[in-house]
Amino acid sequence: MNTIWIIAQGTFGEAMRRKILNVFLLVAIAIIIMGFAFGSLDPRQEMVTVRSIGLGIIELAGVFISVILSINLIPQEIERRTIYTILSKPVQRYEFLLGKFVGGLLTVLANIALMGAVFFLLVSYKEGHVNVAILKGLLMTFFQLFLVCSIAVFFSAFLSPFVNFFLTFAVFLLGSMSSVIESLGTQDSKKSIIAVDFFKVLHLILPNFGNFNIENPIIHPDVIVTNEFHYFLITIGYAIVYSAFVLTAAVLIFDKREL
């Protein structure tokens, strides 16, 4: 565990120095601030637009940061040949992979925290009270990115960064449309049973990023959600179990990979 943590710390330090990620972070923060100007586009519900744009930007920037960071975590080490130095020490391959993943995750957490803090403070200032609901949205966004990172790391165990980039985004988009896939899996007279069963299975095994989209009640404060804590618990559980699933697969593949 200590080995994983040391690798994670090194990865985090290195990632935070990467200019491209910092550019994403700064652009996102700028758009969040500018989002307050977009509110006037929909004068009836100014804060609805502001909250929606802010949370959306944090999610989208978070996804870009997660993907760009995670797809390079392992290939970069191979390209620079630093992996050989590390693996020549008493470090198992799975420890290296998990350390890289944890380091990447810490970087994503730091980025989310920075963007979230700016957004949280601005919304609270604008609304004149502390908006705790925003923090719930940030928490769920983090666990969504947790899943994105684990999938990107899984693909990075056997794919080039270029292919990985598009594949991870494709999975993210598909997984974000989970409600559409779920509705395709409902029986009606026009659909064949095979198609319905296919979409049912697809809905259950695809990583459903839509599960983490809880913006609607945050954006509309008059919406009451029952047993929210329970929902958060099972959704976070889903992110952890799903990530464990793909990371275990990644460990198996990476372990066999010719370096």
Binding site: F38, V48, T49, R51, S52, I53, L55, G56, E59, L60, V63, T141, F172, L173, S176, M177, G210, N213, E215, N216, I219, H220
Partner: peptide
């Protein structure tokens, strides 16, 4: 719309 900007 599918990535979290639905309300915006």
């Amino acid at each position: 719309a599918v990535t979290g900007f639905k309300e915006a």
